[in-house]
């Protein structure tokens, strides 16, 4: 059964079809939200909320765009709200939170290296309006046009933000390597 058929069944309230859909997307969504927030537990909560919204808003989905971009749109909106909330609170840096990250349920693939550690720190320090388009492009493989639609921004803005995000990451990694 393909995704569109599954989605049609989810619209009718079929929870078995919904569980099948979750199997397909859960890891991608959790990983995306983890890279976006830097907090595994929070990423799982947000991913849970993403799928709850997918279930209750299934009737809003139109097969014009791929199902993946619709689900990631919901996840991106939740990530944006989370980033806004964190700006108002004290944000713990990834390095301070690192001991808690190595908890149950987290397995890193590939295993962490110095570069990946530095990359995670640099990514966490990126503003969310740079981080999200970068993750959607480089991790999830969406096109810039798809990302523009998902984030509700012009394509030119998305291109500029992705380019700027890569530039900032590169500069920070070079600085981190230079310090060592």
């Amino acid at each position: 059964m393909d995704e569109q058929e599954l989605m049609e069944r989810v619209k009718e309230g079929d929870e078995v079809a919904f569980a099948s859909l979750m199997k397909i997307y859960k890891d991608r969504i959790v990983n995306f939200l983890y890279q976006a927030t830097g907090d595994y537990e929070r990423a799982v909560d947000l991913a849970q909320e993403t799928f709850v919204r997918v279930y209750f808003r299934a009737h809003q989905y139109r097969p014009i765009a791929p199902l993946s971009s619709w689900i990631f749109t919901i996840a991106s909106n939740l990530a944006k709200s989370e980033a806004k909330k964190r700006r108002k609170m004290n944000v713990i840096s990834l390095e301070e939170a690192a001991p808690e990250l190595a908890g149950e349920g987290i397995s890193y693939d590939p295993p962490e290296s110095g570069l990946s550690r530095n990359l995670q720190v640099a990514l966490a320090e990126l503003p969310s309006h740079y981080r999200l388009p970068l993750l959607l492009k480089d991790i999830e493989g969406f096109s810039q046009e798809e990302i523009a639609q998902m984030l509700g921004r012009p394509v030119g803005t998305i291109k500029a933000r992705i380019s700027r995000a890569r530039h900032i990451l590169k500069r920070r990694l070079e600085a981190a390597i230079g310090e060592k």
Binding site: D27, I29, V44
Partner: peptide, 21 residues
């Protein structure tokens, strides 16, 4: 930098579907 190759990838916990349901 190829983010996909260098960033660690995490997965959903085993009981994720049940929690969502």
């Amino acid at each position: 930098i190829n983010l996909k190759n260098h960033l660690p990838r995490v997965t959903a916990p085993p009981d994720f579907e049940q929690r969502v349901l």
